[in-house]
Amino acid sequence: MFDFKPDATASKAEVYQQLLEAADALTTGEPDGIANMANVASLMWEFLPDLNWAGFYRMGTGVSGADELVLGPFHGRPACIRIPLGKGVCGVAVQSGETQCIEDVHSFPGHIACDAASQSELVVPIVRNGAVIAVIDLDSPRTARFDDEDAAGIEALAKLLSSRI
């Protein structure tokens, strides 16, 4: 039985280290990427305060044959199922290959509002062999919820997961 919980007295850096250790423990040796994303989505939901959505979008191919992001495992309200590359915070993260830390999603050009409660967003690409294979997406109902420390913590998680999803 697993009972992963963050230490209530831990600093933000320590919480991210504990999250990384828990994700490593749950995904080591498990070959099913969907199962690994599901467990890590649950860990993020448990470890990170002030979220209204935590999960993954995976690279896929749409009906037209174009690459797009497809909804993966998550916690939160129902979400957009498909996101075109270059659209919204997630699509821009894939197209640029760079972390997107958005203080106010309403000021982000082309923001896709899947949940009206979302005020800020952090999206980190997961890269394998030089290509984005998925993104980790965190939304918060609080403006400016995410900072450089959050970005670094989720980037470390993305690196860990790059060979496990």
Rank of each mutant, 00 (worst) to 15 (best):
Q100N: 02
L69H: 07
G110K: 12
G88Q: 07
P73N: 12
E68W: 05
H106C: 11
G110V: 09
P78T: 03
C114D: 08
H75P: 02
Q95C: 05
H106P: 09
G72A: 08
H75V: 12
G76N: 07
L85Y: 12
S107M: 11
C90H: 07
V105L: 13
F74G: 06
H106A: 13
G97S: 13
P109A: 08
A66N: 15
E68P: 02
V70C: 13
P84A: 15
H106T: 14
R77A: 13
V92A: 11
G76K: 10
R77L: 10
E103W: 10
G65L: 14
G88L: 01
K87W: 03
I112G: 04
L71Q: 03
F74H: 08
I83P: 10
E98K: 14
G97D: 06
Q95L: 11
D104N: 15
I102D: 02
G91N: 08
I102K: 01
D67A: 15
V105C: 09
T99F: 00
A113K: 09
R82A: 13
R82D: 04
E103V: 12
D104A: 09
R77H: 06
E103A: 15
I102W: 00
P109H: 07
D104Q: 13
V70T: 15
I81L: 12
H75Y: 07
C80L: 03
G65A: 15
G88A: 10
